[in-house]
Design a protein around this nucleic acid. Structure first.
Length: 646
RNA sequence: GGGCCCGUGGCUUAAUCAGGACAGAGCGACGCCCUUCUAAGGCGACGGUUGUGGGUUCAAAUCCCAUCGGGCCCA
């Protein structure tokens, strides 16, 4: 099993599921038994798939690793293993090479079993009662989304789709900091500095973020006394029931609505909006604070520089590292509110919010929000008290997240709290792109942080539009689609798919240094390549006619290497889903999808399907149909919108 | 001052957690392939002392120690 830094060992060493469609797991279990190992996960450590250079389908390195422990020579041990495996029906061949036992599938057997398994729901996990809450996006409601935010949202959205696909009960929330300094900055601009509240033809989030927020912040630098205005606004917001607070709430919702529109364009939707202010109004912080005091999770410092502060000891040893939760003036730090929120997520607070239905989203699901209204809708689904919460928060907030995790685990007492900080690196700008945005570029710097406050960032929709224009130009020159309307639709879908795929396919812990020119080059095995592969595949199935897709005769299958390759990909699909979802690793699935697309194109060029005869025609058509199902499933998880003609 | 993350061909990267076969791809540049299901495609050749130096091991990109470069956090 692939490991993960997001899930600890006790969660990841689960057995592979033994449902009857996961043929690979079934085969692995037979091998596990022959090797005398207790779990499939253990057997998997010695198992390596796809080794064309060694002309086999998978190899077992058990002898190589274990011979020293048992004192048996490697070759003798490998020979024994080969003997033990000889009776397995799914193997055509096993041979000992360099201490490995190299095995080849019996394709007739494997294809025969896949015929029954590879249906439209192939790879889907059985539904479980495990409840997971994913929090993602959580952008301050004072500006338009930039590419860094979209990295967060796209990861969160695809993770939720992946976990739903593997059978989990997932709730997706977006946490809105409607009481923070950034929102207050905009209020200062509009209410005290006479800046207009909106601009014709410019979306409100973009206008406030680009003009008001940036301008107000540069004014603070020239005239620090203005900061008193912000403090005043913050106080008014916290107090509530006044003109400033009402105005702020209205502005927050207008910006949020605009942000959600952008996210909707990317195909990203939520179950619930959580307002930070409600954590305060519902007195969840007080409850959390009292609970922490009652079990001595936090203590009041009586001396030293933290005198008068309530602190949370992170490791219990070094008082220097104690985290201040409540300052000596009685105000709560961010982490404090986050702890209360995390306690709500995991059902550690006695009470719950009230909720209101906002509207039905384009994906057909209702969007709910927390509300202060007494006449709230009680028909809402159960949102909180989940088993696992996955919190998509960028790597710069690791320390805060550690505090929250440690606190909520302590407060959970005997309950097994799985609080996961899914940290990812930020999107930075290349020197070339930073220069284009008007930033002063020093020679030795390789990257530049985006900054909403300084107005130095790549607006997500603006970039998406450039990408769309670029793709549209290309689309126009294609013959597959003729109407302009259709071409624009394809360009939009491909632009979204491309951007989402680029943000998902690499390791989230690697910083993404974004260069506009490079990003618009559209090179490589990107989402367009994957979609093109899909369109070609669909084209063949369409021409053949749906009624021609039948179960092939598997008696005397004689497959070429590319066909074998695709059968192997089919076999691996349930495992790819399971591995990706157990380790929360989307790039693993992205790589699987990409390599499957490569295999399809190689197959496409090596043989002809429609002109094949008899059994070969049946087999190839079935193969394409089945592979089509797995790439459709993978694409939908990764947010690639399927296009059938391009 | 303390801590975390990243470093693999010109570029983007896989494999690192749990050591295992000549480090696997893609892009770019080079050569070939459309009278055959969509050439937004395929095939081929080229390109690597895995930042550096030690150590452990039959075996190190992977583990340990040091060090350099880039980024981040805490104080």
């Amino acid at each position: 099993m692939r490991a993960s830094r997001y899930t600890d060992s006790k969660h990841k060493r689960k057995n592979m599921k033994m449902d009857k469609t996961n043929i690979l797991a079934d085969m692995l279990d037979s091998i596990r038994e022959k090797l005398g190992l207790s779990t499939i996960a253990e057997a998997k450590r010695y198992f390596k798939i796809e080794l064309h250079e060694h002309s086999c389908d998978f190899s077992i390195s058990f002898a190589l690793r274990e011979s020293k422990r048992t004192g048996t020579p490697i070759d003798q041990m490998a020979g024994d293993i080969k003997q033990k495996l000889s009776s397995l029906p799914f193997l055509a061949k096993a041979e000992v090479v360099n201490g490995y036992v190299n095995c080849s599938y019996n394709y007739s057997y494997v294809v025969d079993r896949l015929c029954n398994a590879a249906t439209d729901v192939y790879g889907r996990g059985e539904e479980t009662n495990e409840r997971i809450m994913i929090e993602h996006t959580s952008v301050n409601p004072n500006k338009a989304l930039h590419l860094g935010h979209i990295r967060n949202s796209v990861i969160g959205d695809s993770l939720s789709k992946l976990l739903k696909f593997s059978g989990k009960n997932v709730t997706v929330t977006n946490y809105i900091d409607d009481t923070g300094a950034q929102v207050a900055d905009n209020v200062v601009g509009v209410k005290f500095l006479g800046m207009p509240y909106g601009k014709d033809g410019v979306r409100i989030d973009k206008y406030l973020g680009d003009e008001v927020y940036v301008k107000v912040n540069s004014m603070y630098e020239k005239d620090p006394s203005l900061l008193e205005k912000r403090a005043e606004v913050l106080k008014a917001i916290e107090k509530g029931n006044n003109e400033i607070a009402d105005f702020t709430q209205e502005m927050v919702n207008r910006v949020l609505e605009s942000q959600l529109k952008t996210l909707g364009r990317f195909g990203i939707f939520y179950n619930l909006i959580n307002y930070e202010s409600h954590i305060l109004t519902y007195k969840f912080w007080e409850t959390a604070f009292n609970q922490m005091k009652s079990i001595n999770a936090i203590k009041l410092e009586t001396e030293g520089k933290k005198k008068g502060c309530w602190v949370f000891p992170i490791n219990g040893q070094n008082p220097e590292e104690d985290k201040i939760i409540v300052r000596s003036d009685g105000t709560v730090v961010y982490a404090g509110k986050d702890i209360a929120y995390a306690m709500w997520k995991h059902g550690l607070l006695d009470s719950d919010f009230r909720y209101v239905k906002l509207y039905e989203q384009k994906n057909g699901e209702v969007l709910w929000a927390t509300t202060l209204d007494e006449r709230a809708d009680t028909s809402h689904p159960k949102f909180n008290a989940v088993d696992t919460s996955i919190n998509i928060v960028d790597v710069r907030q690791t320390y805060e997240q550690e505090v929250v995790k440690a606190a909520v685990e302590k407060l959970g007492k005997s309950k097994d709290i799985k609080y996961i900080h899914y940290d990812y690196e930020v999107v930075a700008l290349s020197p070339n792109t930073a220069k284009k945005l008007g930033l002063e570029v020093k020679e030795d710097k390789e990257m530049f942080q985006m900054s909403g406050r300084k107005g130095v960032y790549i607006n997500a929709e603006d970039f998406l539009n450039s990408l769309k224009d670029k793709i549209y130009e290309e689309t126009k020159s294609r013959e597959a689609i003729t109407s302009e309307e259709e071409q624009k639709k394809v360009a939009e879908a491909l632009a979204i798919s491309t951007l989402r795929y680029e943000l998902i396919k690499t390791d989230p812990r690697k910083m993404l240094v974004f260069d506009v020119d490079e990003a618009l080059k559209l090179e490589g095995k990107n989402a367009i390549y994957i979609n093109y592969t899909y369109a070609r595949l669909i084209n063949i199935l369409r021409k053949a006619g749906e009624n021609k897709i039948l179960k092939p005769n598997t008696d005397n299958l004689n497959l070429n290497g590319y066909e074998q390759d695709l059968v192997g990909k089919l076999l691996m699909f349930p495992d790819a889903i399971e591995t990706a979802s157990a380790s929360l690793d989307l790039s693993y699935l992205a790589n699987y999808l990409s390599s499957t697309a490569i295999s399809i194109n190689s197959f496409y060029n090596s043989v002809n399907v429609l002109n094949a005869e008899g059994e070969m025609f049946q087999f190839r058509l079935w193969l394409l149909d089945s592979v089509g199902k797995i790439i459709r499933s993978s694409m939908s998880i990764l947010g690639i919108i399927p296009i059938e003609k391009m």
